[in-house]
């Protein structure tokens, strides 16, 4: 593990832990953006800069802003008062999360992972990505486009004030 990776991992984990313990919802969302920044840095480190910047573009500027708008549109009196932000069955939730983590760790250390790394001549080029997208993956692309359209229309209809 190199120092750079350790620093980025620390950033990601700080954001993730902050998002699970902070009290105010807006603070949680802001620490979510820290997680995304860390992840974007990891993507760039893994020679996928296009996806890293796309992650920032999609998540930080679109999804996070959407979440923030929703947070502001739904003011929750119960949670912003003194009631604990954690649900009643939180112990059980922690146990489930912990056991999943233990299971994943067990699997990672049992799996026969290749320790080496194949050298790339250049980072994944956007051009080849686009060519794959337009030849081999054109059907998934169309499906995704359809899904996005459906999701957009659905979201608008669900969130409309007077569904009529």
């Amino acid at each position: 593990m190199s120092l750079t990776f350790a620093i980025i991992a620390a950033i990601v984990l700080t954001g993730a832990i902050g998002l699970s313990v902070l009290r105010k919802t807006v603070h949680c969302v802001l620490s979510l953006t820290i997680v995304f920044f860390g992840l974007a840095m990891l993507y760039i480190r893994l020679d996928a800069p296009f996806l890293g910047f796309a992650l920032v573009l999609i998540y930080v500027s679109a999804v996070t802003i959407l979440i923030l708008f929703t947070v502001l549109l739904t003011r929750n009196r119960e949670i912003e008062t003194d009631v604990s932000p954690y649900s009643r069955g939180s112990i059980a939730g922690l146990i489930v999360g912990g056991s999943v983590f233990a299971g994943l760790i067990w699997m990672i250390y049992r799996a026969p992972l290749s320790r080496g790394i194949t050298e790339l001549e250049s980072p994944a080029s956007v051009k080849s990505l686009g060519e794959r997208l337009m030849t081999e993956y054109v059907l998934p692309l169309e499906v995704i486009a359809l899904l996005l359209t459906a999701a957009m229309i659905g979201a608008v209809i669900v969130a409309m004030k007077d569904p009529g």
Partner: peptide, 25 residues
């Protein structure tokens, strides 16, 4: 000289929205 310079430009530029939200909130 980034290969994805334009995406970088817009990804970083769009963080301004977040900053504006933080300031307002």
């Amino acid at each position: 000289d980034l290969e994805v310079g334009l995406i970088f430009f817009f990804a970083v530029g769009s963080l301004a929205e977040l900053a504006v939200f933080m300031a307002g909130w």
